[in-house]
């Protein structure tokens, strides 16, 4: 007994204590116990959703600015029929699809070089370039673009030296998409990188030795094997851009609203919490449907559950 280190005896005491509080036969419950905080959080979220659902069924009375006591589907009728919401929804969905496609196209070579390069310095530079914008934040970055792309900004100043311009580079739809792509790129790269890392270099070498040039290797081996990464990155980029608020608000010049901006307007500009709740609910539903569709069609990718297949 004396030969045991003190820490061992300490641990023995602790273990005995734990055994009293949490008997061995309950050990099967441990994983569930650890799940509890997550379940609690999700539960709160669901509770909030119920409240939003309740709100969505009440209309605003503009003589008292209170929500109606009775339920009606009027908000849903308005959300689904009024051209404003149709336009905004169309703009958001089209935008998020374009942003997703372009972001993935740009993220792939970036992630590939970052993962495969033999140069530690290059990898470091790529990583820093990737993470730096994270510390800057969305709003500040968007304002940065206003400064750079504005009528008297860096780009137009440079163009004016060449005798052309100025061009209106901000406050339009392409500017919003550009801002979103720039904001989403790091997310996509970070989601793609593990999927690319999981492809053994040996597999690419094998394809080469079997007669494939690098383009063929990329198309027939790297892309299909990176698919889980594409699915994961695509879903993250799509849902984040679909629900984005700041970039359309700042770079859109007020005329390029996404769904989140329309929701904000209802809650904070017209005080119509019912319609705001309805729009929020419809956005959640549309987003979930989109995600479910992708899951059903191409699997869960790196967001997936269960053990990864080889």
């Amino acid at each position: 007994m004396r030969a045991y280190p003190l820490t061992w005896r300490l641990l023995d005491v602790l273990e005995a204590g734990v055994a009293k509080v949490f008997p061995r036969r309950l050990a099967g419950a441990t994983p569930y116990l650890m799940l509890a905080p997550a379940v609690l959080l999700v539960g709160l979220l669901v509770l909030g959703l119920f409240q939003i659902a309740d709100g969505s069924l009440r209309t605003l009375d503009t003589t008292t600015f209170l929500m109606s006591e009775s339920y009606s589907l009027d908000n849903f009728r308005r959300a689904l029929t009024e051209p404003l919401f149709r336009n905004v929804a169309l703009k958001s969905f089209t935008g998020s699809l374009i942003v997703t496609a372009i972001t993935l196209m740009l993220a792939l070579p970036y992630a590939y070089v970052m993962v495969r390069t033999k140069s530690a310095a290059l990898r470091k530079i790529l990583l820093i370039a990737l993470f730096l914008p994270f510390f800057i934040g969305q709003v500040v970055r968007a304002y940065g673009w206003l400064i750079i792309l504005g009528n008297q900004g860096l780009v137009n100043e440079t163009l004016s030296f060449l005798g052309i311009g100025p061009f209106r580079l901000i406050y339009n739809y392409p500017a919003v998409l550009f801002g979103l792509i720039q904001y989403m790129l790091p997310f996509a790269v970070l989601m793609l990188a593990p999927a690319l890392t999981a492809i053994p270099e040996e597999t690419e070498a094998a394809a080469e030795s079997l007669g494939a040039n690098w383009i063929q290797t990329f198309i027939h081996v790297v892309l299909p094997m990176a698919r889980p990464g594409f699915v994961g990155a695509g879903l993250v980029v799509m849902t984040l851009s679909l629900t984005d608020f700041a970039i359309p608000a700042i770079l859109g010049g007020g005329s390029q609203d996404f769904i989140a901006n329309a929701i904000y307007d209802q809650f904070f500009r017209t005080s119509d919490q019912g319609l705001g709740a309805t729009l929020a609910l419809l956005l959640v539903a549309a987003g979930s449907t989109l995600v479910a569709l992708v899951f059903a069609l191409v699997g869960t990718g790196t967001l997936g559950m269960g053990r990864a297949k080889q």
Binding site: P200, E202, T203, A205, A206, A207, E208, S209, L210, G211, A212, N213, H220, V221, P224, M225, K309, Q310
Partner: peptide, 17 residues
Amino acid sequence: PNKRSIGMVFQKLALFP
């Protein structure tokens, strides 16, 4: 490598999953 007429079996096989 892709222009050499060499078949190779790799340490981890490198099959296409």
